[in-house]
Measured scan of single mutants.
Amino acid sequence: QTVHVKGVQYHFPNPEEAVKFALKVAKDLGGRVEFHGDEIHVE
């Protein structure tokens, strides 16, 4: 599972961890989380 944050990719073997990370980052940055297939983008 890959999380993209402002052009940087973070790889997580566990999808659940990836989602938790993405939600935390989005909250910290005041952004939103978008799901694109296997990828999660924080915009």
Results as ranks from 00 to 15, higher is better:
T2D: 03
V3W: 00
V3I: 03
V3A: 01
V3Y: 00
H4F: 14
K6P: 02
K6H: 13
G7R: 04
G7D: 06
V8C: 14
Q9N: 08
Q9H: 12
Q9D: 09
Q9L: 13
Q9S: 11
Q9M: 13
Y10K: 03
H11T: 08
H11M: 08
H11N: 09
P13F: 10
P13D: 14
P13H: 10
N14S: 13
N14Y: 05
N14I: 06
P15C: 15
P15F: 15
P15K: 15
P15Y: 15
P15W: 15
P15T: 14
E16W: 11
E16V: 09
E16G: 08
E17T: 08
A18V: 00
A18N: 00
A18G: 04
V19N: 06
K20N: 08
K20G: 04
F21N: 03
F21Q: 03
F21G: 04
F21A: 04
F21H: 05
A22R: 00
A22C: 05
L23M: 13
L23Q: 14
L23G: 06
L23H: 13
L23S: 09
L23T: 12
K24T: 09
K24H: 09
K24I: 08
K24G: 08
K24R: 09
K24N: 09
V25S: 05
V25C: 13
A26T: 02
A26I: 05
K27W: 08
K27M: 12
K27F: 11
D28A: 14
D28K: 12
L29W: 08
L29I: 13
G30N: 10
G30A: 06
G30P: 06
G30V: 04
G31W: 14
R32P: 02
V33G: 01
V33P: 02
E34T: 13
E34G: 06
F35R: 06
F35C: 13
H36A: 06
G37T: 06
G37Y: 06
G37R: 07
D38W: 09
E39Q: 12
E39S: 10
I40H: 01
H41F: 14
H41W: 14
H41L: 08
V42Y: 02
V42I: 10
V42H: 00
V42S: 01
E43N: 11
